[in-house]
Each structure stands twice: as C-alpha cells, then as structure tokens.
Amino acid sequence: MSSASASTVPLGRPLVPSRSTVGGVLRWAGRIVAGTLLIALVLVAGTAVRVWQVARIDDERHADAILVLGAAQYNGVPSSVFQARLDQAAALYGKGVAPLIITVGGKRVGDAYTEAAAGRNYLSANGVPADHVLAVETGSNTLQSIEAVATAMHARGLSSVVMASDPWHSLRTRTMARDQGLQAWTAPTRTGPAVYTRESQAHGIARETGALLWYRITHYSADFKYTAEQ
C-alpha cells in the first residue's frame, strides 16, 4: 500500500468531535430550547389576555336562548357561584334578551337534584315562568354540558345563545359552543365569589388560560374547581 493511500488516523482510536463542534451543537440546542420557551410564553400570555378581554364583554343582543352553565348545588339549593349565574340569566331574560333560559348539568352520586333541575327550580321561584326554562339534566363538565345543550337546541331548531357564566369562563364556553355549531356570545355575571377579590380574579384567569389551552390542544375538557362555593 502506498503512503498516499494510508489512513492518517491511527488504528484503534475513535473519532472524537472537536470542542468547537460540541460547542456549536450546544449553542443550537440552547437556541431551540429558548425559542420553544419563548413561543410557549407568548402563547400562554396571549391566551390569558384574551380570557381577560372576553371576560369584560357584555353582549346582550337578542338570541334564541340564554344558557346558564351549572355549578354546585346542595340538595336543590344553588351554591353562591351558581346563584350568581342564575341571577344574571334572570336579568337577561327580564331585558328580553331571549325567550328561553336553558339550565344544564347532571348530578353526583347521592345527590337528589341535578344542577339543571336546581337551576330551573330557582329561576321558577324567582319569577321566570316554568315553561320558559329548559333543564338539560346531563353533563359533568363544561364540554359535556355544552355538547348536550347544542344537541337539545339543534333538535328544537334553535341556533343562537347568550352564555351566562363567570367572566373568566366566558372565552372557553363561547369557544366550545361555537365548535358545536352554535352562534354564541357572552354576558357574564358581575357578582359572586369568582369576582369578589383581585386574588379570585387572578386565579380565575390563570385557571381558564390553562383549561382553554388544554381544550384547544386536545378538544377535551379540563375543569378545575371554582373558588369557594358558599
């Protein structure tokens, strides 16, 4: 074998990347990680801003129905969170926003009432005619409830809905309703534990930001327990 064709790398010695090569790889890896974190930060921050923006909207245009998202009830008595939503729905009904209020929500094991039934009974006891309240007695989370309401509305030829929930809940519920083929807008309650303090407001925005991102990525619900339901 000629000296020109002989290997210049001694036999038995592995090829070791130079320090400059390793440094370059680490720099690129660091840039990728930093870029990913920046994108995630912008996405989270942007979603939080949208949650806050939509929470401030009171859209009281005329619709086919007003939807009250369920919350805890105790032997047929709505919790303070649920009552605030129901009072808002009753106020919207009184303004002529819609001729029908829909309550929604199932019940837990051992409960005597569904959330929907407790809401219907509360509204009827507070001046809303019983035949103007539709109780959709199913759903253990926001997505299931909205899917059930959409099915009930489509079956009745109804297509537009004003959603009465907590302010921070508005964007996610509106997004889900529109995904179910409904024309949906929001007019949330301005009373109740969800809006009592700055702390509860910040907690609500953070919670709904995470839940909305989860829904957009997976199309599953991610409901977290609301602030104290007294």
Rank of each mutant, 00 (worst) to 15 (best):
A90S: 10
D131C: 04
Y113M: 04
A184H: 10
V161K: 11
Q53V: 12
V133I: 15
A125G: 15
L123F: 03
Q144E: 15
V77I: 14
A116Y: 14
I39L: 15
T103S: 06
S145C: 03
H169K: 04
E229P: 01
L69M: 14
T197E: 03
V44W: 15
L100E: 07
Y74Q: 07
G76K: 08
H132I: 04
D64G: 05
T21I: 15
L158F: 03
P167D: 07
V195K: 12
D111S: 02
Y122F: 13
G105Q: 06
V162E: 06
Y93V: 09
T209R: 09
G30P: 07
T21P: 01
L100D: 04
V42Y: 04
M163F: 13
L143H: 11
R207W: 07
D87K: 10
A125H: 13
A155M: 01
I146Y: 12
S79W: 07
A150L: 01
V81K: 03
A177K: 04
G204M: 07
A98Y: 06
A164P: 02
R108L: 11
T103N: 04
I101K: 09
G127E: 09
D179R: 11
S7A: 12
R19H: 11
L123K: 13
I101L: 05
V68D: 03
Y93G: 01
L92P: 01
V128R: 10
I39D: 10
I39E: 05
R27N: 11
F224E: 09
R27F: 07
V33T: 15
R19V: 12
A40K: 01
T36P: 00
V49C: 00
G127K: 05
D166M: 02
S80F: 01
Q73K: 05
S170H: 13
A6Q: 12
H132T: 06
S160A: 03
I205L: 08
Q183Y: 06
M153K: 09
